[in-house]
Write a protein that binds this DNA or RNA. Structure first.
Lengths: 114, 114
DNA sequence: CTGTCTATCCTTAGTTC
DNA sequence: AGAACTAAGGATAGACA
């Protein structure tokens, strides 16, 4: 950003793109480090660079695995909750229909008697 | 950082910690957005806040799933490579860790000076 | 390519409404 | 609570070694 305003577009030049990548990767990691320290939270960053055959992982491979595992668990939990909600919603509809059928039956019986 | 130098430690006060979380989460997402645009790469951030029962995911749930899947695949690949060529791989990692430690040491020294 | 420097732009803690 | 502001500290593009 210094010396010139940021242009948010792909850097065509290979070497300067690589330099920017390294600098900004460091910056991003530092920001993440500050955020997690200041707020006492867990986080991870995964990022693929064409410069390395392994992905960049912050803060560490192990920590990232932990965060991903927790993320997965929560996703699963959410889906279960969603299904539970749908079940109860469906059950509610069934109950309502049953109510209606009972009422209708009652009406039918009364009509037969008269 | 403005009005006072940053103290990189857990913010005890609940409401100001939450404000800082929101601001810095935005900042982090912006930085990640810039990095991925400028360098044409894929990335994701997963982060657990105590303010929400679901995790913050950047740039999106779907994109994160993709990145994680790719990460998993590469991890497997790495393990194969590790077995094939353990020495050079290990040496590379050792070099990287040494680099990181040097950088951190430098940061520590700078912080002590200020 | 890797590291250092610095002018300039960006981010954000504290404040106010 | 939440949005807007602003001074001050931080990040970084480009230049250089």
């Amino acid at each position: 950003m210094p010396r010139s305003k940021l242009n948010l577009v792909y850097i065509a030049n290979d070497s300067s793109r690589r330099v920017t990548f390294t600098k900004r990767m460091d910056g991003l990691a530092k920001k993440a480090d500050e955020l997690t320290n200041l707020c006492g939270i867990e986080a991870c960053i995964i990022l693929f660079s064409p410069y390395d055959h392994e992905p960049e992982v912050w803060p560490s491979q192990l920590e990232a695995q932990k965060v991903i595992a927790r993320f997965r668990k929560m996703s699963d939990l959410e889906q279960s909750e969603l299904m539970l909600n749908q079940e109860s919603f469906t059950q509610e509809r069934i109950n309502k229909i049953n109510e209606k059928m009972k009422k209708q039956e009652k009406v039918n019986q009364q009509q037969e008697m008269s």
